[in-house]
């Protein structure tokens, strides 16, 4: 995993750095799609890199994809990197042909009523997508319908970071044309989306930590750098602890993909990043003080994302409840047996 991660990091970093320097954020927050950035992303061939070589990809898989997503989070890339990578990954698994057009994944978890429309809240980037890849369950099978966005109703909305999170209505009849995802449950797909956000959050947390350390070393008050004050140091140490716990949780979840413990460690990753996000933003803004509260300072590009992402694809309360439920459902009394099979043994 480490060598692969390094390779991805080397090749994606320059591209993503360019992205965060341009006017992509302003375009996105004004409701436009950063076309030129997207073109660069496609030109570098990232969209299909998760797929196996047989499917025309680079064989990075979900694990490699998460490394790319973490970098996208670190560089606050104003593009649907996470969503498009997952959609293409799922489309290939369902046997669909993929082009360079933007596809966005959506999971329907509520029971589907055959009579009524289906309302989907906060679908990422829907207004800019060519189609939605809708995942749902029928007859105990996981199904996928790819629906053209021309055939759906989209109402624009944004999350706190100004990222498109649109309300979408589809008609239940649009699910009639489907293919099946063999051997993959809808819970798994939900968890993969959660892991993707958690990976982005781990990157954003790292960025917030670095910015805050730099600022504490630059800014002087009372005749010395504010980072020299113990009160500041103690808060920053906790920020570093929570950031490294988040990165470790995401990395561990990535390493446990395709093991018996995949779901549990993904739950841990989303819970840990979610818990860390609040503390990180609070502390980073406390250290940066008034300047960090302005639009002209880049800190807000990371903190507004963290505040948004922690609630997307399930917040820490939702994942904790699910994880807790599994603990109570254990057949045996022994929590410890269950915990220690988490290590891939």
């Amino acid at each position: 995993m480490n060598e692969l991660a390094q390779l991805i990091e080397e090749s994606a970093t320059r591209l993503f750095e360019d992205f965060s320097n341009g006017n992509g954020h302003e375009l996105m927050e004004a409701g436009q799609f950063p076309d030129t950035l997207w073109a660069d992303f496609l030109a570098d061939g990232w969209l299909t890199t998760l797929l196996s070589e047989d499917d025309g990809g680079a064989g990075l898989g979900l694990a490699g994809g998460c490394v790319l997503m973490r970098l996208a989070g670190y560089h606050k890339v104003p593009l649907p990197v996470v969503e498009s990578l997952i959609a293409v990954y799922l489309a290939a698994k369902s046997g669909a042909e993929c082009t360079d057009e933007l596809i966005i994944p959506v999971v329907i978890t509520d029971p589907i009523n055959d009579q009524s429309d289906i309302n989907l809240y906060g679908v990422p980037w829907a207004r800019h997508a060519a189609s939605l890849l809708v995942v749902f369950t029928r007859n105990n099978a996981t199904r996928v319908s790819i629906i053209s966005s021309q055939d759906i109703t989209i109402k624009s909305a944004q999350n706190m970071a100004g990222e498109p999170r649109d309300d979408v209505t589809i008609n239940v009849s649009q699910l009639d044309n489907f293919s099946e995802l063999q051997g993959i449950t809808i819970e798994q797909i939900e968890s993969w989306l959660a892991l993707s956000r958690a990976a982005q959050m781990a990157g954003a947390l790292q960025k917030v930590l670095e910015m805050t350390v730099d600022y504490a070393n630059e800014r002087s008050q009372f005749g010395r750098q504010i980072g020299k004050f113990q009160a500041v140091q103690q808060q920053m140490a906790v920020l570093a602890e929570m950031t490294s716990a988040s990165i470790c949780a995401v990395d561990a979840a990535i390493d446990h993909l395709n093991t018996e413990q995949e779901w549990e460690l993904i739950a841990c990753a989303k819970i840990t990043t979610g818990e860390s996000a609040g503390y990180a933003c609070k502390t980073a803004h406390a250290v940066h003080a008034a300047i960090g509260f302005t639009q002209e300072h880049p800190l807000q590009l990371s903190t507004r994302r963290l505040w948004s992402w922690r609630d997307e694809y399930g917040n820490e309360a939702k994942w904790s409840a699910q994880l807790g439920q599994r603990c109570f459902e254990l057949k045996t009394d022994n929590l410890w047996n269950w915990l220690t099979t988490q290590t891939g043994e």
């Binding site: 470790c248 561990a252 840990t272 904790s320 807790g324 915990l339």
Partner: peptide
């Protein structure tokens, strides 16, 4: 009394699982 306790138990189990990963590392 499991239902009301699920989020708290889940939260602590998650912390424990991540600490194990960190300590193993």
């Amino acid at each position: 009394l499991t239902q009301q306790a699920e989020p708290i138990i889940g939260q602590f189990v998650a912390r424990l699982m991540v600490l194990r990963q960190m300590s193993l590392s």
